[in-house]
Amino acid sequence: MAEVLQLKGLCKSFGGLVVAADVTFGLAPGDRTALIGPNGAGKTTLVNLISGALYPSSGDITLDGRSLVRLSMPARVQAGVARTFQLNRLFRDQTVGDNVRIAVLQQKRQSLRMWQPRADGIAVEAAVEQVLGALHLQARQGRLVRTLAYGEQRLLEIALALALKPRVLLLDEPAAGVPRGESGVIMDVIAGLPAELAVLLIEHDMDLVFRFAKRIVVLASGAVLTIGTPEQVAADERVKQLYFGRAGHVSHANQTGQVSHAGRPH
């Protein structure tokens, strides 16, 4: 199928520090692609480049052949690219319902309406119910976000992105910080995402990655090391080396990883 999102020779460096080096791959509708790599490989940087939080030094990002690199972050969202955040970025003093409502109002371009109560738009409310339902959060609708359990906040983070009805969804470590026993709920939600949505998942938990992904992109030091099916990647010697290394290489890889991680702006 034709690729909806394409990254072409994407490069980004901060001074001498290269965080994305000639990254080229694409996502087709329905894709379930995982992006893996050690700490500091440039995974979140790539999400920031695609979503518009960072501008690339060179290269192109296209959505349906239309270049996104000159568009602002809001314009890219309106074009159909949504993301979640590794650390929860929610409206903590608002209710769960209002959090989703804020996102739906953006998607329906109704955020400038002044002459009706905020919960009176029929189409908006239907969309809010639908998103909350898809993430099993209906019962939490009236609760303030800061009173939610952490795992539920992770779900709400996904809910906000889904409310935007994106065509490309970038999930930045959706299970980060969630205890292993509870990450199943998040995996179920991810498994139940709309079939035609192109999904790029960044995750450290290899169980999740191998259950979710039909294709894995391995990133190392900002560059694509390999792209393949989970079986191919699991069998790849270079990937094994990257993660497990030989005795002498482990500490070295970790060090460089941490240095570039610390140097990454947030």
């Binding site: 409502r101 804020i102 109002l105």
Partner: peptide
Amino acid sequence: ESPFGLTSRG
């Protein structure tokens, strides 16, 4: 109390 106000608080 409108969608506009909710967005403002966001």
